[in-house]
Every structure is written in structure tokens, then in C-alpha cells.
Design a protein around this nucleic acid. Structure first.
Length: 258
DNA sequence: ATGACCATGTTACATGGA
């Protein structure tokens, strides 16, 4: 029963204890991290060595972005960047071959900074992501996409009034491209198992968590082979309730193999 | 009823985040 998980840590160097506690609570087989906010060589590999997980970090100078994968099952890193734009040096994407398929960990651009050019970058990035997924689905490769998508897919995926309608996380163009991903044949795992609720995965710092004024922006998307085997999915809100937490909570899913 | 964050880089703010 392999478990996959995603966790936007909002600085890995500030969140090592939280990460260790999450690993102990959930023991995911593969965990994808976002917003490392450090260079690759600054990733706290030594502090995490005791967990026994294999680590692969993709950092970036300047304290922005950054993704990583941790595994206790064998995995092979297949890419450290999203194809489709040679000049794109953001550390937002890592892929591995594992569990008989290919799995992407991603940190999608927020799209609220940099004006319309920044928003266009987000939309282009989503189209490149769809191309990456389509290529694998066309070959019937089992695929999972996990990460911080920075999109609330529907109005049910954020607390009323939590964001203005002009925000890049809820703009129709962003939502249309998220739907385009689903229309390739991917299943939104959390939505599939919890259709009536829409568990949030992010709460702003301050009173938002206590009042449950949150957003659902961290997602796990599964190709049909794995969606059929989806046996559990949830949000680890315990991580968000800890001291000095990330503003995101981890999302996990369990696949019923064999 | 009201108020109200955090992280980085660089050094008292600016920027990004969502």
C-alpha cells in the first residue's frame, strides 16, 4: 500500500523538525517538497540523514522556489526542470521513475507578481505541464502529479471571501488550465474521495487557521491506472497546527497495489 | 468587536508569497 505525499514547507531550513514529525506520522514512500527557499547545496541533508530517506533536492539561488523528493522506495530522478522553455531556470519541477510509473513534484508559479507577464508565465507553465502529462498518458505510463498548484479549482476550494476574484489563484484562465489537466484523464485524488467537503491545504499566517479561512491549492492528480487503486487521501492538518508551521499542510494519498 | 504573517537578502526595507 504505497503512500505518496506533498508538502510545501515554506523554507526547508526552518521546517526540518516539522518534516521529521510528518515522516514519523505518515511514513510516506515518496514525499515531494516545495518552496525549499535555499540553494541545492544548502539543503539540510545531514540533518535528515537519520530519517533513512533518500533525498534529491533542486534548489535555486536567491531564496525562492526549490523542490525536492524524499523516498524510502527506489526512485530514479528523470528531470529537474519542466520542458518547453529553455530559458526557464526556476526550481519548480522534479520527476522520478518509481512504483512502475513516473511521478512529478511541482511548484506552480503563483502568478500574482510581475504583472500580466507574471500571470502569462503561470498560464504557459500550466500548458507545459499538460504537455508533459499528455505525453505519458498517451503511452499509458502510470503518472502522478503532486505539489503546490497555486490554483483553487472551483469556488468550493476556498473560504468565501478569502481571495478577491482577480487573484491569479482563482482567475478563470487559471481554473480553465487546471480543468484541462483533469480533462486529459487525471483524477483529483482529494476531491475524488471527499466530494462533499473540500479540505483546505493552505491557511494564511495569523487567524486564518483558527477560523478555517483557507484555500485548497495543494493537489494530487493520478492517471487512471493509479486512480483505480486510490484507497485513501487526506490533509495532515496536524502539521499546520504545530508551532512555527509552514502556511501549507501536507496532502497524502494511499494506493492499493497487489 | 477587533486585529492581524512570514521568509529571504541585505542591513531598515523591498519583494514574494497566497
Amino acid at each position: 500500500m504505497p503512500r505518496l505525499a506533498t508538502f510545501n514547507v515554506n523554507s526547508i531550513r526552518r521546517r526540518v523538525p516539522h518534516l521529521k514529525r510528518f515522516l514519523a506520522r505518515h511514513q510516506p514512500d515518496l514525499l515531494f517538497l516545495q518552496e525549499l527557499k535555499c540553494r541545492t547545496e544548502e539543503f539540510p541533508a545531514l540533518e535528515l540523514a537519520e530519517t533513512g530517506y533518500r533525498l534529491h533536492a533542486v534548489g535555486q539561488p536567491g531564496g525562492r522556489n526549490g523542490v525536492a523528493v524524499l523516498g524510502r522506495v527506489p526512485f530514479e530522478v528523470t528531470a529537474e526542470a519542466l520542458p518547453g522553455e529553455a530559458a526557464d531556470d526556476h526550481a519548480r519541477f522534479v520527476t522520478v521513475k518509481a512504483l512502475g510509473g513516473e511521478i512529478a513534484g511541482l511548484y506552480l508559479p503563483n502568478g500574482n507578481s510581475g504583472g500580466e507577464a507574471g500571470f502569462a508565465y503561470k498560464l504557459r507553465w500550466m500548458e507545459r505541464l499538460a504537455a508533459w502529462a499528455a505525453e505519458r498518458l498517451d503511452h499509458f505510463t502510470p503518472v502522478a502529479l503532486l505539489g503546490d498548484f497555486n490554483v483553487c479549482p472551483t469556488a468550493a476550494d476556498l473560504a468565501p471571501g478569502a481571495l478577491p476574484p482577480t487573484d491569479a489563484l482563482v482567475r478563470p484562465e487559471s481554473r480553465a488550465r487546471f480543468r484541462a489537466l483533469l480533462n486529459l484523464g487525471l483524477t483529483d485524488a482529494l476531491r475524488a474521495l471527499h466530494p462533499a467537503e473540500a479540505p483546505y491545504t493552505y491557511w494564511d499566517y495569523g487567524p486564518a487557521f483558527d477560523t478555517n479561512r483557507g484555500l485548497r491549492i495543494d493537489h494530487i492528480l493520478l492517471s487512471p491506472e493509479w486512480a483505480e487503486r486510490l484507497s485513501g487521501c487526506g490533509v495532515d492538518t496536524a502539521a499546520r497546527a504545530e508551532d512555527q508551521p509552514s502556511d501549507h499542510a501536507p496532502v497524502w494519498c494511499e494506493l492499493n497495489f497487489g
